[in-house]
Amino acid sequence: MNTPLSKEMLFTYFAGQATVLQKQLIEEWLGEPGNTERYFEWLQEWENSHPQFLPDIGEAFKNVQALLKAPSLTDDGTRAGAAGAPSLPWRNWLRIAAAVLLMAGGAYYYRDAILYRHYRTGYAQSRTIQLSDGSRVSLLANSDLKLPRWGFGSIGRDVYLTGEAGFVVTHQVDHQPFTVHTPDQGKVTVLGTEFFVYTRKRGTQVVLSKGKVQISSAEMVQPLDMKPGEKASVASDGKIAIQPLTVTELKDPAVWQEHHFHFDHTTLADASRELNAVFGLEIVVADPALAARQVTGTFKARQADELLSVLSEMLDMRVLVGGDRVRLVPDSTDTN
């Protein structure tokens, strides 16, 4: 009638060490009323005493609270289970959210936060990200890489870049393309290769080291092919120009990653605007006297912090980094 079973036997089973006969016993036991609940009770106990890892519950709960605080949309769509559409719970929520999407900036952020994973770097930071398909992205300073939480690698491999990053993309057996989307509606599509993308307000540039790449823009929808050793520039009007790298540029990638600045009695205010255009960095110069100071010279920098550090010495100022912007202030330790 009742199959007696000890907790110990279940524990042995959970650990993957039950014999075939024991498993049969357990299956029988599970068929008897009430034992399923007992099974889960013991499973919980077993997990608690043999954890695979210990996540931070406090952090996790805070995260959940934040995600739930998203502008509330009564889930009238979800309970009934939308006819026909199988769904991740997000989907029904999103259908309702879509209408208010553009009105409430907050809604967009949370939808984005749920559907996409963001990797961000700040001022003078860089990081390497490894994607689930084995591809690697080296994200440079003040940049943002966005990719879908789910589905990456299932229908396609799509990432969204703001800023600058180097890519080493794996070739998939099913020839799945990898696409980098840039904010100006540019698209760089590859099969498996190495390339670098720079994309900020002033335009998009792509440099190809290895493999084959197709590049398109809103203006030039028919993609153009790029070969290794070439650089493509997408201007603000969407036109794409492809040119070969110079010999020096070919030898050293650092060279083509460098941005050149020519200042000729340029005020710091104007120089900051230039830095903003090139690096996407917000720079604030509150002091009018400082903003009016002029700088002359040619500079090369891969990242904003390099240039700002040079300028701070020349102009007697300090660079204060906070949040998502940089403040330039006069250096008070004046030894005049």
Binding site: L43, E47, N48, H50, P51, Q52, F53, P55, I57, F61
Partner: peptide, 23 residues
């Protein structure tokens, strides 16, 4: 949440073998 989050994550990790995905 506080009662079940940890054992559930541990259990999920046995399947997906990935801490972040499990969470």
């Amino acid at each position: 949440f506080r009662t079940y989050y940890q054992p559930l994550c541990s259990h999920a990790a046995r399947f997906v073998y990935n801490k972040e995905i499990a969470e």
